[in-house]
Design a protein around this nucleic acid. Structure first.
Lengths: 345, 345
DNA sequence: TTGAAAGCGCTAACAG
DNA sequence: CTGTTAGCGCTTTCAA
């Protein structure tokens, strides 16, 4: 950072300045500023006034070093570019807001290398806990998490072994449930449309569960279409058009997320395709946006808010038994058939 | 945080542990780990190996205290619940990624009180700079920013005095431009649909610019409709239906953001309303989602990515003259008439 | 190129 | 209820 900011005759204020301005020892000033009760009313008032008048802002760097405690929670997520993780963050914030704990967010862009870097960076601030999306990590990241000596909560996914605590849904089962619902409605020639992201393990697990359920019924996916980047809504349109022109006989399209599903739905409506009669559609996530479409897309809710809340509650020990480690919470996603899956036959 | 995590015989590793494991002084270990060149190749290798074998993670709390420097940049934004701020963050990250500086995000929910708290909290970590959305702050927040002694960049808005640096667009002018475009196309009976957010100053300024331009043409808004919370797309539909049933004579609807605008557009398409012939529509933001609709909504791009990038460049001194303070950058939003404003008469 | 000493600003622990 | 002392783990500064 360029150093032109200030000719700098001013230091930044310290406890000692407040101490001198109020005529109270540094230690007592520290007690007041941390709201530790054992200070007389009058002393407290004098200190508060001095601190406010000076515009003192405590130095948490020094405080953290001295107390060996840092009120930060590291939150590591793959992306901010769709609404799912912001909603998880909202849940985390809701719970943390009352506790003095503060979330610090790191974004990995679905890259294991970035996850490792972000994690290293965050752990070097000695946070009180870590919330990290997913169960898949590089060996080094796993080692760091294991040895950090703080509570770790892996979120969004329960299909696999956890390092410490875990909160989420089974994406494998989610995929299965959707497939079973689709089959029960009599659809048989099913296509899949999804993202080209090798590290989106949850999408992969959903698809695995989905195809496993098809296989159990003696079926397989008839066709697939992948995309990468760009407006998901537009990609959904384009991919849908592409797959249908290639395979006009398909009677169901399963999308890996609601945005491309919504795009597909809009295409079908514009093209006058009979949904859900001739063609059924389903997405995943239960995003709010779907409420605004003329026809409600079938979807499954990933319990994002609840996942965030539960993860934060684990870190704050607000669990049934007060534990903040080794907790396992599997939530059950709701399947909303909307108006794009016909009634079971 | 509940303290059940670890019977704790292990401490967390320190420089001294690496020093002992490698037989090199703490000071030299510190030099190696910070990549300061003045260390012999062999010493460096021994230290790196020891650090890696132990799984040492440096303690930035201690480092920051000792060096009086912290590689954090505080980023304070009102919301994560639409795509605009995440896109600003993306721009910030892109630039910061190469610099060793790390963004730390705080969310205010458009509340001045929360902004004040978040700012206090963040400044207590002694970041190297602050990026904060908007020019409106409480007196206390303004005082903190002024006295922090670090570069401050206010972003998104240039309509008003800045504390230090500023990057953004003029929302007043943006509103004006849109109004002028609408009037030039011959629309005359104009309604407004927006959010009920007293602290969204940018939306307010756009509307002020918009009505000012109408007034200059001897016109005023014919009707208004506000919403608060919920699915913006759905609200856009509902509000549009409401305002049109109340005032079927309106010939243009100006939306305060693209999501409700898109909802309105979908309503109009479903209702068979002739857009842009009988009714024109326009939103604001230039969100990617619009690409996925059958008809392109008129909008204005708020230059979100560019704003983020420029703000980060100021903090890193990557400006034309290397300054990181007192910089003022006004970007010019592009007006995209899309397909919902008819050609000028 | 390496090491030793002296803090950074705050809080834990104890004494009064 | 208030004050004193001794660090927290690292980096700065200076010396070798």
């Amino acid at each position: 950072m360029a150093n032109d900011h200030r000719p700098d005759t001013r230091r930044t204020l310290t406890l000692r300045d407040v101490s001198e301005a109020s005529g109270v020892s540094e230690m007592t000033v520290s007690r007041v500023l941390r709201n530790r009760g054992d200070v007389s009313r009058s002393t407290r008032d004098r200190v508060m006034k001095a601190a406010k008048d000076l515009g003192y802002v405590p130095n948490k760097i020094a405080g953290g070093l001295a107390s060996q405690r840092v009120n930060l929670v590291a939150v590591i997520i793959p992306s901010l570019s769709n609404m799912v993780f912001p909603e998880v963050l909202t849940g985390i914030s809701q719970v943390l807001d009352d506790t003095g704990l503060q979330p610090v967010v790191g974004v990995t862009n679905y890259s294991p290398e970035r996850e490792e870097r972000v994690l290293y960076e965050m752990l070097s601030w000695r946070p009180s806990g870590v919330i990290v999306a997913g169960l898949e990590h590089s060996d080094a990241a796993r080692a760091m998490l294991t040895n950090a000596g703080i509570p770790i909560v892996e979120i969004m996914d329960v299909d696999g072994p956890a390092i410490d605590s875990v909160v989420g849904i089974s994406h494998h089962r989610a995929g299965q449930m959707m497939a079973q619902t689709i089959l029960a409605a009599g659809y048989r020639r099913i296509g899949f449309l999804g993202t080209q992201m090798p590290h989106d393990h949850r999408a992969r697990k959903r698809l695995e569960g989905f195809t496993a359920a098809l296989a159990a019924a003696g079926l397989a996916l008839e066709d697939r279409e992948y995309y990468d980047g760009g407006s998901a809504l537009l990609k959904g349109r384009e991919m849908t058009q592409a797959i249908l022109s290639r395979r006009p006989d398909l009677d169901f399209l399963y999308y890996s997320n609601d945005m491309i599903g919504a795009g597909g739905l809009l295409h079908c409506l514009d093209a006058g395709i009979d949904v859900p009669g001739r063609l059924g559609l389903a997405g995943f996530n239960g995003v709010e946006l779907l409420d605004g479409l003329r026809v409600r897309l079938a979807t499954m809710d990933a319990c994002r808010l609840e996942v965030g809340r539960a993860a934060a509650e684990i870190l704050t020990g607000k669990t049934a038994d007060g534990r903040s480690s080794g907790v396992r919470i599997e939530l059950t996603p709701r399947l909303d058939p909307g108006q794009t899956i016909r009634a079971p036959r």
